[in-house]
Design a protein around this nucleic acid. Structure first.
Lengths: 138, 138
DNA sequence: TTATCTGCAAACATTTTGCAGCGAG
DNA sequence: CTCGCTGCAAAATGTTTGCAGATAA
């Protein structure tokens, strides 16, 4: 039997969690760290990484990379089931979206080529309404 | 005026290019390096990285990461137009796929939320037929 | 000839880990 | 009191860069 350690709610863990829940943007670990320091929370970068990692693997936050970059970005997602993101390239604002069309198409393709245990990644980037306006104005 | 250096066809560059064209798999830079060494080409890892980078930014090869991993994978793609990949997580074997369903859905979503200038990334991962068999056997 | 390319080693950027002490329950 | 968590520093990982010598054209 595998024993899973009980999670303790430390000051640091709560601070990270609260910050994530207050944001609609995807943030990197160093960004989270900086924001917490600015708001007066004493916390180490490693702790931020450890907690974001934990939150990610528990499915509580989503992880993605923009444009194949080396930096992982994290975001709390109210949508718990499998979903995707429509992310504003300019301001980072994100909309959660779900799509049966996509899931079905993925299934069909996988079957067609004899692949099993399929998963997929899909991210949609663009300029949100207000950033579009700004661009036209500027 | 920006002067772009003329590319010289060195033994190393040719070896990389030939290897990529002979493969259907996505390969990491270290994998390419190892394969070349095994086949008797004397080449440094940095050279491999430099050339793969160049090929990637010229659009001659596609780049992706499997399951958000830290490793970049490269593959020569006969399909020049916009397309996606069905990639084996285990051995890297890849099938090029195109999907109007996907493109249309992306358009629809973007319009629905007032996003403009949208682009998307989509990759399908799984175990190819032969890797699936192996897993069941082992 | 000469500018580009190469190999090597050292630098980099991001993330992970080991460990001694701290602190939630 | 206990065991999980933390900060720090050090390590690991994957990739890039600087430089002196090699080489394609």
């Amino acid at each position: 039997m595998q024993r899973v350690p009980v999670q303790r709610m430390t000051k640091q863990r709560r601070a990270i969690w609260d910050l994530l829940r207050s944001q609609t943007k995807f943030l990197s670990a160093p960004e989270v760290h900086d924001l917490l320091l600015e708001s007066g929370t004493r916390i180490g970068l490693a702790t931020v990484y450890r907690n974001l990692q934990a939150l990610a693997s528990s499915g509580a936050v989503d992880v993605l990379r923009v444009d194949n970059s080396d930096v992982q970005l994290f975001r709390y997602c109210p949508e718990k089931d499998h979903h995707h993101h429509l992310v504003c390239r300019e301001c980072g604002t994100t909309v959660d979206v779900t799509g049966n069309v996509l899931e079905k198409w993925a299934q069909t393709l996988a079957r067609e080529y004899g692949f099993t245990k399929v998963s997929h990644s899909f991210e949609l980037f663009g300029l949100c309404a207000s950033c579009s306006e700004e661009e036209n104005a500027g």
